[in-house]
Design a protein around this nucleic acid. Structure first.
Lengths: 351, 351
DNA sequence: TTACGCTATGGGAACGTTACCGCCGCAAGG
DNA sequence: CCTTGCGGCGGTAACGTTCCCATAGCGTAA
């Protein structure tokens, strides 16, 4: 690769070639004021000739802005989070910033490590889906921060972007009710996670509004994974029940796991068990039956988070709590009990 | 956030508090030689007390190593690439490096832009799944580089990591043959992509070995997306045929799209049409029937790519071409024609 | 003609870190 | 007792950039 041995050209090289001082070269390249058009042109040509590319490390060092943002999510291999990352990435790139992505695997230790790495890298700010339920010292973030998800509620001083869980749960439950499922069982995430409480609270509110007792709800917990959903569903199926079982899962991966558990048990979805998911990952479309789900706008959430982070960085004071509306994607995983003869719902149904 | 106004502590602050010079402080923090244990300890304590965190920008500027790597892939929201990214991320983090991820959307222009951004960010090297079929000037990469995928073959001077397509195709075709499918139709990517040619070549070799004429193969092209696969399958189904149709798709997303097209046409997979995928994305497990596929080790590929990149950065001369073996995941999308009465394959089958 | 103002340019410092070099003091050997 | 060597430490330059300030040159008005 021959040329790789030679030093990368700096602005001094450009200046020498153009026969000006490095200050002038810098001004010309910054397109700033007080430059003769002729000099500017000469500098630009020289820059192109030597293949000059501005060193962002040096710029960052001098300006205190690295032009980089951090993103810490549970798992980039989870389609929902990949979608969030994609949105953040695009939005950041559009603003000329780069994104450092890290996966915490829901591990507070890993999360702390990644945050430290980001601080060291001098990112201008970070977007975090917090897994720790308590950051002992928020100042220790040491950088502008935007939270993704409902855990943010615990930290009134931090901007956050998330889906509107209240609206989403309402959407899901209303849909269940309209299909004749009055009190679905719930498959929720681990008790430690604040999102779980938010979800549950929204369900309770909905029940109270309908003059029902939330106490009747069957609830099983699990990790936010396929396996977690599968196990939870297995436990749910082991409980005595009469008639059709409807399940609202707090996450699509869990819902898909639940679907597998239903099959494992020799039952049929949606004939014997109805399943409603939450996330809107593409896999739900390929499942059979197609997974009916409440879809979060993952990509939008990523974009808005980056925008909020920019505001935070520029100290625009209006720090915000943004709740993005969700929408229902109806596919085939819910039986319609409102008609007299429940029957298998036909067609995979693309939305 | 009160404290956020104050300047971040530097090594000078640490030195002052410890009552030593910044050189000594640096040595102590670097854990290097020629330091009294007592001084070292005092410095470390001082660093902790002021909340010092080494500025990687400054380190990078001084050392010429930014500690960052770049990753340019088609789409982080595609599960296979997310898996690759995850592997790369983990491996990089283990070495104390950070990863800048960009999605090119199979667009050469976007790819070029992202590569420029990476150069400007002074990443130590980049991992690229090249979409451009010709980089006019490889030196213009301006940084150590590792390619992912078969396009790398065009550039003998660049290390590469990819799946062993020959072995993968052999695996897939052997499996098809063992199930009684002698000449599957192919759903391939766009003609412009080199991976397509590699795939096709491997198929031809396999046919020639079996004394068959590759000319009989029905081939349809499409984008590497669900929609691309769906359209291709639609065209395939429109062709006149006798008996059972078997399809080998070059990518799982396409295979899932093909599956949808089969359903759209009122046919049944695997009764009427058998589908074999290529990638091994998790969605394939939830599809119904489960997608039988040749799985690439995405995460491993990401890890190996990072390792290769480190070698490249450190000028370890043995630049490499690594082909990772694939494995067959048998689920339910293939009919078994080798038994007298073809019947629906039972069970979703986790691998 | 002189003085003033404006504009284009050059010089130099600073961002935070590390590496090199030189200095000082102490111990050991001649 | 003097020399030598070495271990510990401080000073300073350098990485590449931008910004502030100084200065030279030129035009204009009194």
């Amino acid at each position: 690769m021959g040329a790789s041995r030679t030093r990368r050209p700096t602005i001094v090289d450009v200046a020498e070639r153009a026969g000006v001082s490095k200050s002038t070269a810098a001004r010309a390249l910054a397109g700033s004021s007080n430059i003769t058009e002729e000099t500017r042109e000469r500098v630009v040509k020289a820059a192109a000739a030597v293949g000059y590319e501005r060193n962002h490390l040096a710029v960052g060092m001098r300006s205190g802005r690295s032009g980089m943002l951090g993103l810490v999510i549970p798992d980039i291999a989870n389609p929902f989070w990949a979608d969030v990352a994609r949105g953040a990435q695009d939005r950041a790139a559009r603003a000329g910033a780069s994104l450092l992505v890290f996966s915490s695997d829901w591990d507070p230790k890993a999360e702390a490590t990644h945050l430290q790495t980001l601080r060291r890298a001098r990112v201008d700010g970070a977007i975090v889906n917090p897994v720790s339920d308590s950051f002992d010292d928020l100042d220790r973030f040491g950088m502008p921060c935007v939270f993704i998800g409902s855990s943010a509620e615990r930290y009134p001083d931090v901007s956050s972007v998330g889906s509107d869980i209240t609206q989403a749960v309402r959407l899901g439950l209303d849909h269940l009710v309209s299909k004749g499922h009055k009190a679905p069982a719930l498959i929720l995430g681990p008790k430690s996670r604040l999102a779980r409480a938010r979800f549950l609270r929204a369900v309770h509110e909905h029940f109270v509004e309908r003059d029902l007792d939330p106490g009747v709800l069957a609830i099983e917990d699990g990790e936010y994974t396929v396996e977690g959903g599968r196990e939870a569903m297995k436990r749910l199926l082991a409980q005595p029940r009469v008639g059709h079982l409807a399940v609202f899962a707090a996450n699509d991966m869990m819902a898909l796991g639940a679907m597998m558990a239903v099959r494992d048990a020799g039952l049929d979805c949606p004939r014997d068990v109805s399943i409603l998911g939450f996330d809107g990952i593409p896999s739900g479309e390929f499942a059979w039956p197609g997974l009916t789900t409440v879809a979060k706008p993952g990509r939008d959430i990523g974009e808005r988070a980056v925008e909020g982070l920019f505001d935070e960085i520029e100290h625009k004071p209006e720090h915000r709590r943004i709740y993005m509306p969700c929408r229902l994607i109806e596919r085939g995983s819910l039986a319609d009990l409102s008609v007299t003869t429940p029957r298998r719902v036909a067609g995979a149904g693309r939305n």
